[in-house]
Computed example of a mutant assay.
Amino acid sequence: MTLASFSAASRVTAISRLTALRVPPTVAFAFAVIAIVIAWSLAPGLFTNHSPVVGVTAEKLLSPSAAHWFGTDHLGRDLYTRVVYGTASSVTSALIAVVIAAVAGGLIGLLAGFLGGWVDIVLARLVDVLLAIPNFLLAVIVVTAIGFDTTNAAIATGVSAVAVFARVMRSEVIKTRQAIFVEAAFLMGGSRWHILLRHVLPNASRSVLPLAVLQFGLSILVIASLAFLGYGDPPPASDWGLLISIGKDYLKWPWLVYAPAFVTIATVLSVNRISRWLRKTD
């Protein structure tokens, strides 16, 4: 096969794979929203020329316009700029929470489902205790214990979601452990840890990806709620929950609440739509 024919075949294969995915328009729109949010978090200075901290006194509480897309707040600061600069904190905190929940919960579920016996009993009871406590209440308890700031709020959110990942991973490990290829690996003399890492973990973790995407959206909501209650970074930080909390004191100027709330809701709904699509996609 010549290089040209190989390249043509590769392009055909790539196109056929993309066609097979059949991404619905709603999912494509959700990916576009998430792409904008990620771009805001990585390079906020490319999307606005205003300062998120310094305002213009003469421009206090202006309604949305071409000059100020989301209006201005009580200190004359451009609200769109504050939302954009607050994206990095919200996204990073949600990622920290998901990593903590996925790693800790995945490890607990992996050991409980694979080892079984008394290990499964002890870890399953621990998971039951965590599931008995509402997630938001557990997050409030943890952040109260370790201190008030956005990073601690992310840690608390991650801890509150550990039980969910542990339960899902345990069920997937038990299902995978009973598969024929795992039994064949045992009969061929494979060690328990080799089978665990080589066969069980890769197959059992497939269900964790949609859950992690879904948990990312839920983490944004929980962290925003904690910031709304004052458990996050104090002003002049511009976390989305904090912006909503500040805006509720100025009900005559509703865009102070609507703008950050709309961005938060759009982000969470987009993440949820992507998660549902991933669950249906092989």
Score class of each variant (00 low, 15 high):
residue 132 A to K: 08
residue 223 I to L: 06
residue 262 F to T: 15
residue 65 S to P: 00
residue 183 E to G: 12
residue 96 I to G: 01
residue 133 I to K: 01
residue 246 I to M: 14
residue 61 L to D: 09
residue 242 L to C: 09
residue 161 A to H: 11
residue 263 V to A: 13
residue 145 A to I: 04
residue 140 V to S: 07
residue 230 G to D: 05
residue 166 A to K: 03
residue 46 L to A: 13
residue 52 P to Q: 03
residue 138 L to Y: 07
residue 216 F to H: 04
residue 89 S to Q: 09
residue 41 S to Y: 02
residue 154 A to V: 06
residue 262 F to K: 06
residue 94 A to N: 05
residue 192 R to E: 13
residue 249 D to V: 00
residue 12 V to T: 13
residue 23 V to R: 10
residue 278 L to N: 08
residue 165 F to D: 02
residue 154 A to F: 01
residue 256 L to P: 04
residue 96 I to K: 09
residue 252 K to I: 00
residue 75 L to H: 12
residue 223 I to M: 05
residue 41 S to A: 15
residue 177 R to Q: 13
residue 43 A to T: 12
residue 91 V to F: 11
residue 16 S to K: 14
residue 277 W to K: 08
residue 77 R to A: 03
residue 102 A to E: 02
residue 115 L to A: 14
residue 162 V to F: 04
residue 41 S to Q: 01
residue 20 A to E: 10
residue 188 M to P: 00
residue 10 S to V: 10
residue 50 H to G: 02
residue 221 L to W: 02
residue 159 V to C: 09
residue 37 V to L: 12
residue 55 G to I: 08
residue 155 I to Q: 04
residue 231 Y to F: 15
residue 250 Y to S: 11
residue 141 I to F: 14
residue 74 H to P: 02
residue 238 S to T: 15
residue 95 L to Q: 03
residue 142 V to A: 08
residue 17 R to E: 12
residue 51 S to A: 09
residue 195 I to F: 02
residue 74 H to K: 13
residue 9 A to P: 01
residue 178 Q to T: 12
residue 64 P to S: 08
residue 23 V to S: 10
residue 255 W to L: 02
residue 243 L to N: 04
residue 190 G to M: 03
residue 66 A to Q: 14
residue 200 V to N: 03
residue 134 P to A: 11
residue 267 T to C: 13
residue 6 F to V: 00
residue 111 L to R: 01
residue 43 A to M: 12
residue 257 V to S: 09
residue 13 T to W: 10
residue 30 A to F: 04
residue 75 L to T: 08
residue 134 P to N: 10
residue 131 L to G: 08
residue 258 Y to G: 06
residue 66 A to Y: 07
residue 169 M to N: 05
residue 79 L to C: 06
residue 228 F to T: 02
residue 131 L to K: 07
residue 6 F to Q: 15
residue 120 D to I: 04
residue 207 S to P: 03
